Simulated assay, not measured.
Amino acid sequence: MNDRVLITAGASGIGRAMAEAFASAGHQIWVTDVDTVALATLPAGWRGTCVNASDDAGVSALFAEIRETWGGLDALCANAGIAGPTALVEDVTLDDWRACVSVNLEGAFLAAKYAAPIMKAAGSGSMVFTSSTAGIYGYPNRAPYAAAKWAVIGLMKTLAMELGPFGIRANAICPGAVEGPRMEGVLEREATAKGMTRDQVYAGYASGTSMRSFVEAADIANMAVFLASPAARLVSGQVIAVDGHTENPDPKV
């Protein structure tokens, strides 16, 4: 197999794990990111573009380049996202709300908007959206993030209906608490907001799953590779949690 795969926010974190997993499966890799330092560390053979996922002009130009360079696109991983503020809803500013929703939701919309015509022309394709368990259960003190991730699921399900007749599938992965720098930031901010230690918050997240565990980025990446593969040829419109089975959506000790 030699599919052409685009991963947004693919230079680090979950996106980087996705890119590595697809590359290991023999696919061509193109990643976007706003982190130029991380983009500079991409392996030989990968393509990388610095673009903000919520910048319409930048994303449009990216897909024009993909069309010209690759001639098509087999799989899209719309993965770009930011954590947003950790605060009670009355303390969230409108600017912070808009910034969070812009990257998490509008970034997914723009990637799908420009990928759809390319995939329609080929009569096939797979779109994998990174949502969150916050998009299933809600998330106290994270209203902008939870709202955006719920909306990503609505977008995905609508696209599955719109694009299915053209042979294009759409699915969403909902990670739980994923080990890594972004989650460390969330833990620290939540500890401050709740008057707890970082370790107490960490333990609360782990105890809120039936498997008593955080998730590794590779777990998310493996699911993305499956969803984009022929093995999932009739899997579309699905919301798949990779979270160790969340039992308690309001983690606490």
Rank of each mutant, 00 (worst) to 15 (best):
K194I: 03
P117E: 02
K113L: 06
P230A: 01
L105M: 07
N141Y: 15
Q200G: 08
V253Q: 14
A146E: 08
A75T: 15
N79G: 05
I14S: 08
P181D: 12
L76S: 05
V186T: 12
I240K: 10
I29V: 08
L159V: 01
A80D: 06
K194G: 05
R233N: 10
W150G: 11
E190L: 15
G107R: 04
A108M: 06
T209P: 00
G125N: 03
M211A: 12
P165L: 06
H245Y: 14
D56I: 12
T197I: 01
A53D: 01
E106S: 12
A116L: 11
E20D: 15
G135F: 02
G237F: 03
E190V: 11
G45M: 05
A134Y: 01
E65S: 14
A160Y: 02
A206N: 03
R4A: 11
T197S: 14
L76I: 07
G84Q: 05
I240Q: 10
P85C: 10
W97Y: 11
L76R: 00
A116R: 11
G123E: 00
G13Q: 04
K113A: 09
R189I: 03
F63S: 06
I82P: 01
E179H: 12
N79A: 05
I7W: 01
Q200F: 06
K252N: 13
V152I: 11
E65L: 11
